[in-house]
Design a protein around this nucleic acid. Structure first.
Lengths: 110, 110
DNA sequence: GGCGGTCATTCCGAAACAGCATTGGACGCC
DNA sequence: GGCGTCCAATGCTGTTTCGGAATGACCGCC
């Protein structure tokens, strides 16, 4: 038996061991800006870690999300598909936070 | 009052600086198990970090999500509201991964 | 009063992360 | 064709974050 966590005995939510909201945010920024460096500034980050975010995401998904051109990054079809989901995920998180605050407020503050 | 990075100069996706998919996963596990320790085992984790995840989430949301009883953790209304969103978020992530793999496969594998 | 079970806290070592400096590739210019 | 420019990728290092063992605090039970 493997010694690592690869037992797969549990059927939790599959792996999202690596996909993080930070990576998703980074992906969206790069997709919208078309440049890693510019997206980095928008996120108050520097270029190298942002570049690594994208690489990690692509590695996790097993597919290239962007085409590297000499003008920057262009979305590939897989990237465009992911972008739709990515936006929805962040919107869901936003909604979750908002909802909880609303519920809490109505219960504590009337 | 908190003097954090409340500049809000950028109107990105607001803050989700702290809310992470790991925390959401932890929250769901605790909500379903009703015990931090048991949820920890299910996640192949130990109790202290999991306890911290919940505390961090509650801190981030500004509200208690669970009622601490001597028998474990019981969901408060705010927690129940968050649970619905939490499940949807993870499902969205799952769908995103699935979709991207599908798109990539159809483009590379024919 | 001792015991078992629960979550919260403290401390420490390891892994992850961001940033700096640099490299490598592609194109335009002269 | 060599050189400078613009872009992303990589090596390396300091810092931060994170997980885990041990411990504390609380409560019911016997």
């Amino acid at each position: 038996m493997t010694a690592g966590p690869a037992c797969t005995g549990r059927r939790e939510h599959a792996r999202l061991r690596s996909v993080s909201l930070t990576h998703i945010q980074s992906f969206i920024a790069v997709a919208e800006e078309g440049h890693v460096g510019r997206a980095a500034r928008r996120l108050h980050l520097t270029q190298p870690p942002l570049s690594r975010h994208i690489l990690a995401l692509e590695d996790e998904l097993g597919t290239r999300l962007f085409e590297r051109t000499r003008n920057g990054m262009r979305l590939l079809p897989a990237g465009e598909a992911f972008l739709l989901h990515a936006r929805r995920i962040l919107a869901e998180v936003d909604a979750a936070v908002h909802t909880v605050r609303g519920v809490a407020g109505s219960h504590t503050g009337g």
